[in-house]
């Protein structure tokens, strides 16, 4: 039988140091949101470019306003 994850491992993976009971509370609160996010995970969006488009020219386009 595998051991439950060590608290410090959970802390490092999430990047947040919470006592176990607080973590439990937050996971419970996240459950409703997770239900929605699982719909995203189930989607095949392989051919869709995200709405974020990297633009290397942005810092050079600081023209004055009209």
């Amino acid at each position: 039988m595998s051991e439950p994850p060590r608290p410090e491992l959970v802390r490092d993976v999430l990047g947040i140091d919470l006592p176990p009971e607080r973590l439990e509370e937050n996971l419970a609160a996240f459950a409703r949101i997770l239900e929605e996010i699982q719909k995203l995970r189930a989607l095949d969006l392989t051919d869709v470019h995200p709405s974020i488009v990297f633009d290397p020219t942005a810092p050079y386009r600081r023209e004055p306003g009209p």
Binding site: A29, F30, L40, L43, L45
Partner: peptide, 26 residues
């Protein structure tokens, strides 16, 4: 506080898939 803390549970791929869905909706 709770909303700020639970944002840590959203993974990078979740975020980018959300941006893909956003492109679909647009």
């Amino acid at each position: 506080r709770q909303l700020v803390e639970i944002g840590r549970f959203v993974t990078g791929p979740d975020y980018l898939k959300a941006e893909q869905v956003r492109a679909v909706l647009m």
